[in-house]
Simulated scan of single mutants.
Amino acid sequence: MLGLLLLQVLASCLWLGHSKVVNSFADCPEFFYAGTTPNDALHPQNPAWICQRYRNSSHYATLYDRDRRIPVYSAYKYHPGPAKRPHVWWFVEPQLIGKNDLQEIERESVLINQHKFTLDQIKKSQAVLDDYDKKTGLTRGHLNPNGHMDSKENKTATFSLTNIVPQDKSLNDGQWNKYESKTMTEMSKDCTTTYVITGAVPGSTNVAGGRVNRPSHIWSAACCLVGTQPKKSWGVIAENNKNQVENHSLGELENRLTSLYGERRVTLFNSACPREQASLP
């Protein structure tokens, strides 16, 4: 009887350990309304759940595709503020390298010179600086843009390559920038809290010698709370080779993503966030 009890306890511990590994957003649920994350229809084959940490705090959450070396999505609270865009270097994520005690984004040079990692170790499951250098027609496209953050620390944390995809330059400088800087401001002006999830649909081509996937589409969805109640939601999507942004309701965007992800039903927010049309300016 004692042996059977010990086996049951061991099995329970193993299951709990597995659950903790899978649900690593448990350490930063505050970036998702009601703690509800997008469903697993978006999950890649080799995912990494990252609570994006900088200066002893988590600033947003990212689901990362280790094989394609791009984020699937980043989730955050929209809270622009007066802090200026930081003049910063780019960061990488030590948690993707392997077993180590580093839990915050860090510069490549620091990881190599101070912590004795090799560049090959860093490159194995994430993009590095060289992957984005001199890419004609492409830019480092933030999923969580620094302009949607308030403090210097929050803004600086967005400059991690785990929050970046190869984005068409005309789109990033044009209509997508207009959505981020103007449309979001107008849509969120009466919101107490705005939860945002911005993602990238994997494409059929790669850059950087085949290392980094070039997404076919960039998309974003928002759920606006007035007080503690969701009052409206909206979504946008853009093909990553055109300077054009399509406006959608949350429900329409989820339907579009369901089609793009091979008919695996996509849900992005808690069911309390309205799925009907929100009128974007």
Rank of each mutant, 00 (worst) to 15 (best):
Q8R: 13
V9G: 09
L14A: 14
V21K: 09
N23Q: 08
F25S: 12
P29E: 10
F31Y: 15
Y33N: 05
A34Q: 15
Q45C: 07
N46G: 00
Y54Q: 11
S57T: 13
H59Y: 07
Y60V: 07
D65S: 14
D65G: 06
R66G: 11
D67V: 11
R68V: 02
R68I: 01
P71Q: 07
V72D: 08
Y76A: 11
K77Q: 13
G81C: 14
G81A: 01
P82E: 00
A83K: 00
K84D: 13
K84M: 07
K84I: 03
V88C: 05
V88D: 03
F91W: 02
G98W: 05
G98T: 03
L102E: 09
Q103K: 11
E104C: 12
E104A: 12
I105V: 07
E108D: 01
E108L: 05
L119E: 01
D120L: 08
I122G: 01
Q126R: 12
V128H: 01
V128Q: 01
K134W: 00
R140K: 05
H142W: 00
H148W: 04
D150Y: 06
S151Q: 06
K152E: 11
E153D: 11
T156P: 07
A157N: 07
T158W: 04
L161D: 03
I164W: 01
V165Q: 01
G174R: 09
K178N: 14
T183S: 09
M184Q: 11
T185Q: 04
M187P: 03
T194L: 07
V196G: 02
T198M: 06
G199Q: 05
S204L: 06
A208Y: 03
N213V: 10
W234P: 02
N243E: 13
S249L: 09
L250A: 02
G251T: 11
E252L: 15
G262V: 06
